[in-house]
């Protein structure tokens, strides 16, 4: 395990150095999206792939993280009006909050909401959880649209500093943070997979009734998975306002987050930590290319069609296909 952590950090550093070499800023803009989806799809997979519970609300958890950042950033800007004068100097010391702190806060908020949704619906049949998460994004979007403090339906501006000391552009700093989150989530996913927790998850996925009967604390494990998965999604969303500069409800709650974070693990393979990563890199790169060359609507359509095709033809994703091929070769 320590070796794996070391290896993933090295890989992340190598990626970062390689991307700096050509000196093209757009690489970081495009790369950020892909790395962000590695976090989202890995987070989705902790609940979806390991436990077998479908979360359609990735966009909601992601937006929760993004909007906690917006709330705190807006609060930081309006400090003098919102805080008693005697307290203001102390608040000025900590605001504006650094992005790593915002990431932690976004994670906590989304984790709590994940826990709450899970607590209400996970005791029932699996489909109810899926439906509740689907409705969750609609409701949170309604709340945000009606809340003027974070911009309402018009959206909110978050000013991104132009430079970050030591790295040059701020975009590179954001990219580096997201890369760190990706390492964290992949390491976490791999650790879960090989721990008692992961075996419990797999037991729930394969036969929940049998797991319950054998003494697996199914509800507790499911709640752990929902909370972890929600928290990671929120963490991925927290730096997003700084990345995009202007956050509107339509972009934060975009359906493409829900679809991509489901499609990427299912196309890559759900039972293994590498599956979502492979799915994300393939699908993410494909999307960047089609968005630039054709149009974003076609790119979204492509994801939907690939998702349907893969769940029907290759239910175990690319990883499953490779494993089958290897097994067949060994038998020869």
């Amino acid at each position: 395990m320590p070796l794996f952590i070391l290896a993933s950090i090295v890989v992340a550093i190598v990626i970062f150095i390689l991307m700096r070499l050509p000196g093209i800023e757009y690489l970081f803009v495009a790369g950020y999206t892909i790395v962000q989806y590695i976090v989202l799809s890995t987070a989705w997979n902790i609940l979806g792939g390991y436990c077998g519970y479908v979360n359609f609300g990735s966009a909601a958890f992601f937006a929760l993280g993004a909007y906690s950042t917006v709330t705190l950033a807006t609060f930081g800007l309006q400090l003098d009006e919102l805080v008693p004068e005697s307290m203001a100097p102390y608040f000025h010391l900590i605001f504006p909050l650094p992005i790593p702190v915002l990431i932690v806060i976004g994670g906590i908020v989304s984790g709590i909401v994940g826990f709450g949704t899970g607590y209400l619906t996970l005791r029932l049949r699996g489909a109810f959880f899926a439906i509740a998460t689907l409705a969750l994004s609609v409701v949170l979007a309604t709340l945000v649209v009606n809340w003027d403090f974070v911009g309402g339906s018009g959206g909110a501006y978050v000013v991104r500093p132009g430079k970050f000391p030591g790295l040059g552009s701020y975009m590179q700093y954001l990219f580096l943070l997201m890369l760190g989150l990706a390492v964290l989530s992949v390491v976490l996913a791999r650790w879960i997979e090989r721990s008692r927790l992961g075996y419990g998850f797999a037991a729930i996925r394969d036969d929940e009734l049998a797991a319950e009967a054998s003494g697996v604390p199914t509800l507790r494990l499911k709640l752990i998975a929902t909370t972890l998965s929600g928290a990671l999604m929120g963490m991925a969303g927290a730096p997003f306002p700084y990345y995009i500069g202007y956050l509107a409800p339509a972009s934060a709650f975009g359906l493409e987050y829900a679809v991509n974070s489901i499609a990427m693990p299912l196309i890559g393979g759900t039972t293994n930590w590498i599956g979502p990563v492979i799915g994300t890199i393939l699908l993410g790169t494909l999307q960047q290319v089609t968005t630039v060359t054709i149009s974003s609507a076609v790119n979204v359509l492509l994801v939907g069609v690939l998702l349907i095709a893969f769940v029907i033809i290759a239910p175990n994703g690319i990883v499953g296909l490779v494993q089958e091929r290897l097994r067949a070769r060994r038998q020869k």
């Binding site: 979806g48 479908v54 299912l266 998702l307």
Partner: peptide, 28 residues
């Protein structure tokens, strides 16, 4: 594809989600 293989809970849901999504984009 799903009911016969006992995979309706995860992949069946994803399938219908894909259908919803593709129909929406095609209409768009």
């Amino acid at each position: 594809s799903f009911e016969k293989r006992g995979q309706q809970s995860l992949r069946g849901l994803a399938f219908f989600f894909g259908v919803l999504f593709v129909t929406e984009v095609l209409l768009l």
